[in-house]
Simulated assay, not measured.
Amino acid sequence: MKGTTLQEHARSRADELPGTSLEHPFGPEWEVYMVRGKVFMLLTAVTGEPIVILKAAPADGEALRSAHADITPGYHMNKRHWITLSPGESIDKALVNELVTESYLLVVENLPRTERPVDPATFGQSHAGEIGR
């Protein structure tokens, strides 16, 4: 998948998720997607190619990096809790949608219950167990 297409798919999925906002706290070259003020996705091309940076559970991140050549530790982020999706053949639209949703839910589940735009226990149940496929 080309880098611009990768970012378009990630952006499209993020825009569908309840309670999200797009901000530019690090300048115009960084698109930062948040849910209730907490970051769940970053898009940039400061590395020379368009990339997507997402939150991931440590075990899932490790499995994804092993299974996909185009998934690496999070660029400028905690390497245990964030992953970077780069352009390449090992990533498809379904995987991008799944990983954006998982990143979002990881952040939502750590919000106070009264601030959660969705119930992370029920939202995305159809995605359970698909990480690392």
Rank of each mutant, 00 (worst) to 15 (best):
I53P: 00
R133T: 07
P25F: 08
P112V: 12
E31A: 12
W82M: 02
V52C: 11
G124F: 03
D70E: 10
L6S: 08
A56F: 09
H9Q: 09
A69C: 10
P58L: 06
S90A: 05
L105G: 12
P18F: 09
G48K: 00
L42A: 02
T20Q: 03
I51V: 13
G3S: 08
L99P: 11
V107W: 09
R113E: 12
T114D: 15
M77L: 01
A67C: 02
L43I: 07
V52T: 13
F40G: 00
W30H: 07
E16D: 10
M41P: 08
E115G: 03
T44H: 01
H127F: 10
E16T: 05
S21Y: 03
G19F: 02
R80P: 05
S12F: 05
E8A: 14
S90E: 06
S90H: 06
E115M: 14
G48D: 04
G48R: 01
E8V: 07
K2N: 12
P50C: 04
P112W: 13
D60M: 05
P25Y: 08
I131V: 13
R80N: 14
E31G: 05
G48C: 05
Y104P: 07
S103M: 09
A45R: 11
T114A: 15
T47L: 11
N97F: 13
V108A: 04
A14T: 01
K38R: 13
V35D: 13
L105F: 08
T4A: 10
R36G: 10
V46H: 03
A94W: 03
A121T: 15
V39C: 02
M41E: 00
T72R: 12
E29I: 08
R13A: 01
R116F: 14
Y33W: 15
L85T: 01
G129R: 13
K2Q: 09
E98R: 11
R11W: 04
N97T: 11
M41D: 01
R116K: 14
K93F: 09
A67D: 03
G61M: 06
F123M: 15
T5V: 09
A69E: 15
P117L: 08
F26D: 04
S90D: 09
V32Q: 00
I71N: 01
V46S: 08
L85H: 00
V108M: 03
G132A: 05
G61Q: 05
K79P: 03
W82Y: 04
I131R: 12
A128E: 12
R133S: 09
F26R: 01
H9M: 13
G74C: 01
A94V: 11
P112M: 14
E16R: 09
V32L: 04
M1E: 02
Q7K: 10
K2L: 10
F123P: 07
Y104E: 08
R113V: 15
R116Q: 15
A57K: 15
K79S: 07
W82A: 04
H81W: 04
D15K: 11
A56G: 15
R13T: 04
E109S: 14
